[in-house]
């Protein structure tokens, strides 16, 4: 292949990855360069081991630095951040597993729970709310910008409030917009001199159930999981298969008794559960006695109860749904327990 053609292909690879897929620009440049190199190498006669070896070493370095080391640069700076608990108390997040929970994490790892359970709440789309505040001087310009936005996107003013925008107060311009519309609204309003605030809301099957906005929600978390949540996991057991429900937020959904009964016999909570019984975590002193949890089972449940990551708002993953909307109450009678377990259907 000629130099010119391979250069064009490299340019194509670089620009596709930058403009269409939004890669970090040095990475896109690197990708383009190496695509050029790779296509250019097609000219090389591959009869010497050194040609092969040289090309392979180059590719290995690109792969290692482009995927792993670059990610490490970005993630190694993760620190505690301040967040709020459900009742409004502020604390530093994430909290490392305390006491028995660290031992429980080892039990979780040794028993291979990760073979059937994920620990990652995902989202499928985002919905954006745009709010604006205008001063007295630029009120007319902001109102015109808002109506221009409504005309352009075909969206209606919510309750007509936006057009009667009072000066000095936050006013919702649009709710539930997609990224393109929200950025249009932000640009128009900001150009007219308004203060603009954009809020992100995640949508997806994993997230909280909501009759209007998220009717298929499984109540697995109030927000999606992000890298910050796994700062102290050794290692993060993200999982890739959901034969059972996601456990990233299990500590907020289940209480100790429910978890114990699931471990002893999963079919007590859900009749067609595919989860195997974990009898080895329980011991029986005498034949007629009820089976008592071992130290391992207690630690495992401690660990599971400590998994509440998808609850707390973070800068990169805000929470928009109230915690109490459809959460089971912490202590439930057995009859209620069956009800509250319903939203967590196993699998997809």
């Amino acid at each position: 292949m000629t130099i010119g053609l391979s250069f064009l292909l490299g340019l194509l690879a670089g620009s596709v990855s930058y403009f269409m897929l939004g890669l970090w620009w040095p990475l896109a440049v690197l990708l383009g360069l190496f695509a050029w190199l790779a296509f250019g190498l097609l000219d090389v006669k591959m009869d010497s081991t050194f040609t092969l070896l040289g090309g392979m070493l180059l590719v290995f370095c690109v792969s290692l630095s482009g995927m792993v080391l670059r990610a490490n640069d970005q993630l190694s700076g993760l620190q505690y951040v301040d967040t709020q608990d459900v009742d409004g108390t502020e604390f530093r997040y994430p909290v490392p597993p305390l006491g028995q929970a660290r031992y429980g994490e080892k039990i979780y790892k040794a028993s291979g729970c990760v073979a059937c359970h994920t620990q990652q709440v995902t989202h499928e789309s985002v919905a954006l709310d745009v709010k604006a505040m205008a001063g007295e001087k630029n009120l007319a310009a902001v109102q015109e910008a808002a109506s221009r936005f409504y005309k352009l996107t075909g969206r209606k003013a919510s309750g007509g409030a936006a057009l009667g925008l009072p000066a000095g107060e936050w006013e919702t311009i649009v709710t539930g917009a997609n990224a393109a519309d929200a950025s249009k609204a932000r640009n128009f309003l900001a150009a007219a001199g308004a203060s603009v605030d954009v809020q992100v809301r995640f949508r997806g099957e994993d997230l909280m159930h909501n009759d209007l906005q998220n009717p298929e929600g499984r109540n697995w978390g109030r927000r999606r999981s992000v890298a910050q949540d796994y700062l102290f996991a050794e290692p993060p057991m993200l999982g890739s298969v959901r034969i059972g429900p996601d456990l990233a937020n299990i500590g907020a959904r289940y209480n100790r008794d429910m978890l114990m009964s699931v471990l002893l016999d999963p079919k007590t909570l859900k009749k067609d559960s595919k989860m195997p019984q974990h009898g080895f975590l329980f011991e029986q002193a005498e034949k007629d006695e009820q089976r008592q949890p071992t130290r391992e089972a207690e630690a495992l449940v401690d660990y599971l109860l400590s998994l509440k990551s998808a609850n707390y708002p973070l800068p990169e993953a805000p929470v928009d749904q109230p915690f109490t909307s459809s959460m089971p109450k912490p202590a439930t009678a057995p009859a209620e327990a069956a009800d509250t377990a319903k939203p967590d259907e196993a699998g997809k």
Binding site: S17, L21, Q74, A227
Partner: peptide
């Protein structure tokens, strides 16, 4: 995977 809790450029890559 597309929904992994990592920086978004990794799934894109």
């Amino acid at each position: 995977g597309p929904g992994a809790p990592v920086p978004a450029w990794l799934p894109a890559l």
